[in-house]
Amino acid sequence: MNFKLKVWRQKDGASPGSFKDYDAKDVPSEASFLEMLDIVNESLAASGEDPIAFDSDCREGICGTCSLVINGIPHGPGKGTTCQLYMRRFADSDTIWIEPFRAAAFPPIKDLVVDRSAFDRIIEAGGYIVVRTGSAPEANSLPVAKHDADLAMEAAACIGCGACVAACPNSAAMLFVSAKVSHLGLLPQGQAERESRVIHMVRKMDELGFGSCRNHYECEAICPAEVSATFMARLNQDYALASAKKVLAV
């Protein structure tokens, strides 16, 4: 298969970027999208042009390293991450636009690579259950209803890729934050820190320049881990309750 690519090139965060045209030639239909870019990069190297920088690691859809906005959609058409997108989804000689995830809180690094460490700052603010190593009680001493455990797992499935932010017209990080707040808040182990967790994580999210949620639900639609927007309602509830308690100091 052959494709016309329009790829965002940007030397570094301080320089302006622009789209450049490339031809992707003789790409097998079984190749993944990132393998297609590998093929293009090999041919660029041969002609002495700097390869296109993009992030990836596991290439199995689980580490959340790959990104890219493909034809206007974070992670491209279909469910799943960019590394799990296969070229057979495109038609021969298609033109494909490739851009980085764009958000004020994700500053550009080079070409298609951006800095998503704001997500680490949000987790640092409270996305954990504090357990001194070695002091945990016997695991089966606290049964967890299967329904709660399964729901917690659905929230915990978030891969932290940032597509939700890239898809949101306001660059909100609500789906990401709600996933962690729900994962830990649904489990009995997570109750002690439940209120402080939600307050600190939401405050940090605001501070880092993520926009506010206007219920567009673009995030849910593109989430490769299929994290449900219902967790955002749960986040709002938890946050309202925790804030009210704080004001009333109960």
Binding site: I129, V131, T133, A136, A139, D150, M153, A156, L184, Q189
Partner: peptide, 22 residues
């Protein structure tokens, strides 16, 4: 043995049976 205790306390959502046990 300690690892499972530690991870469960941290909130690792291991699969559970209907009775709520691991």
């Amino acid at each position: 043995l300690n690892i499972i205790d530690q991870c469960v306390a941290q909130g690792v959502p291991f699969a559970r049976e209907y009775g709520g046990l691991l």
